[in-house]
Design a protein around this nucleic acid. Structure first.
Length: 489
RNA sequence: GGGGCUAUCGUCUAGGGGUUAGGACGGGUGAUUCUCAGUCACUAAACCGGGGUUCGAAUCCCCGUAGCCCUGCCA
């Protein structure tokens, strides 16, 4: 039987890379085994719900190429896929559990519960922390009276006292909890909405989920879920808890410690293939030292047995390297639209970006020395307008008075150069260097700085060729004046 | 306080009783070169500690330590 898995985010904020990795593993697992991947939205918390979060989650998943087989937008037989639209189901289930005596109504106020917690905290109770099961002892007539009075209440599961609750985790092996450690967990809140636990169990069962692959912060909740499955008379699914992803300092990932949001990486100019590949390698390795893989290769190689139990640190440096690898594999044509929009954002007028052939040549010059799309756009601005200043350290080094006679030799030589090609330029520079009795570098470095404003970039001669004779001479002239002025001062 | 999970170079990891503990990122050195990037060589860098089991432990067991998670009418 092919597996059915789900990714079930809460729309309380952006999709962070940890969630994306969980989604990715679910996706890879489903595809590898020919199963289905469901997207379900767990919007049962009215207080923390954010409408924009939904858009952001969808966009993130799609950008990473993790198309879900069933869920919002995709449809499917097990819908609706928003928990907020399934409340009748949860209430019905809670009513049945109540009826069967497996759950009970609890009328305790939040104040009483808070007081109880504070007391327990103070007493550092050796065991039996959590709800004191006060309302479990209420008689039927008391309950009727409270109900008749319209007293607000929640529904709690009756958790057995001293029982071993065991399950097999596909990544961590056998895990056992003593039910005495567990609370009588709330199933239905007083606002009539289910808690995560109830909604999750009911939906996983009704949607035919066979494997629950989720973050390991859920591992302590799993025995509660097992008990709930039992109370409902259902067989629990198979569990596998994925390790967390940590910030470089070993702490939790957050916006403050680097970009935690998937879409932030998109905005920062990363390629989705690179982020996806990198995320896959956080907690999983196919073996044989394989790292760069297509989605298809990942699907073919993915198994839960090879997923790590240990938390992994998100190393952005390696992501950048990987992005560079993917960037080199991209054609200039496929990069054009993205780079052009970054150029526009940098303030270049449409007129400057009109010649597509020129644009492609510029991209070609910068692609191989870039790691991100943004590097291509950001470092190539001088192909569209004269440099506004010169890199300070480089100017100190190359724009000294001694450079003046050199520039004076280059300028007229350039005047009649025909054709203005990289070969002709290189011949010219080398010949000139010979005549002047200096190394070619003495000519090349000041020229590069004069023309680009910076000390690094593409090969000088291809750069000059693309810029064209007129522009090159204008910029050299400007640099000459700059040096002469500085010399006088 | 209780419970659970985890532990190999700085980072991601390979390794499932016998290996010079391998690869990648990052670092260092050198070569190439007009710069940067790249590329190519070379190089430094790890089994948390202590007990067992065994002829033999990174691998299995126990204890300790550390980190993380849970202990919510959040998910």
């Amino acid at each position: 039987m092919p597996p059915v898995v789900r990714f079930a985010p809460s729309p309380t904020g952006y999709l962070h890379v940890g969630g994306a990795r969980t989604a990715l593993f679910n996706f890879l697992f489903a595809r590898h085994h020919g199963g289905r991947f469901i997207l379900r939205i767990e919007d049962t918390d009215q207080k923390r719900y954010q409408a924009e979060a939904l858009t952001e989650i969808f966009a993130s998943l799609k950008w990473l190429g993790l198309q879900w087989d069933e869920g919002p937008e995709a449809g499917g037989d097990a819908g609706p896929y928003f928990q907020s639209q399934r409340t009748a189901l949860y209430r019905g289930r809670a009513a049945e559990l109540l009826e069967a005596g497996k759950a009970y109504r609890c009328f305790c106020s939040e104040e009483r519960l808070a007081g109880l917690r504070a007391e327990q905290e103070k007493a550092k109770m050796a065991q039996g922390s959590g709800y004191d099961r006060h309302c479990r002892r209420l008689g039927a007539s008391e309950v009727q009276a409270l109900l008749a009075a319209g007293a607000p209440h929640v529904v709690r599961l009756k958790v057995p006292d001293d029982r071993a609750v065991a399950f097999h985790d596909l990544i961590r092996g056998d895990i056992t909890y003593d039910s005495g450690q567990l609370d009588d967990l709330v199933l239905l809140k007083s606002d009539g909405f289910p808690t995560y636990h109830l909604a999750n169990v009911v939906d996983d069962h009704m949607m035919g989920i066979t494997h629950v692959l989720r973050g390991d912060e859920w591992i302590a909740s799993t025995p509660k879920h097992i008990l709930l499955y039992e109370a409902c008379g259902w067989a629990p699914p198979i569990f596998a808890h994925m390790p967390v992803i940590l910030a470089p300092d070993g702490g939790k990932l957050s916006k403050r410690r680097g970009a935690a949001s998937v879409l932030d990486y998109q905005r920062a100019g990363f390629l989705s293939e690179a982020l996806r590949n990198f995320l896959a390698l956080l907690g999983w390795a196919p073996g044989a030292d394989r790292e760069i893989m297509t989605l298809e290769e990942m699907i073919a190689a993915f198994t839960l047995e090879r997923v790590q139990a240990k938390a992994a640190v998100f190393d952005e440096t390696k992501l950048e390297w990987m992005n560079g690898v993917y960037l080199q594999g991209k054609s200039v044509d496929s990069l054009l639209a993205d780079v052009r929009s970054l150029w526009e954002k940098a303030g270049l007028p449409a007129r400057a970006l009109a010649d597509e052939g020129y644009l492609k040549k510029v991209i070609g010059l910068f692609k191989e020395r870039s790691k991100k799309v943004g590097d291509i756009a950001g470092n190539s601005l001088y192909f569209f307008s004269d440099p506004q200043g010169y890199e300070e350290q480089a100017a100190r080094k190359y724009f000294r008075a001694e450079a003046l006679p050199l520039l004076d030799a280059i300028l007229p030589a350039l005047q009649g150069l025909q054709p203005f090609s990289r070969e002709a330029l290189e011949d010219l520079f080398r010949r000139l260097a010979g005549e002047l009795g200096v190394s070619a570098g003495k000519l090349i470095h000041p020229t590069r700085l004069a023309v680009s404003g910076v000390s690094f970039g593409p090969g000088l001669f291809e750069m000059l060729e693309l810029l064209g004779g007129e522009t090159v001479r204008r910029r050299l002239q400007k640099a000459r004046e700059w040096i002469a002025a500085g010399d006088r001062a």
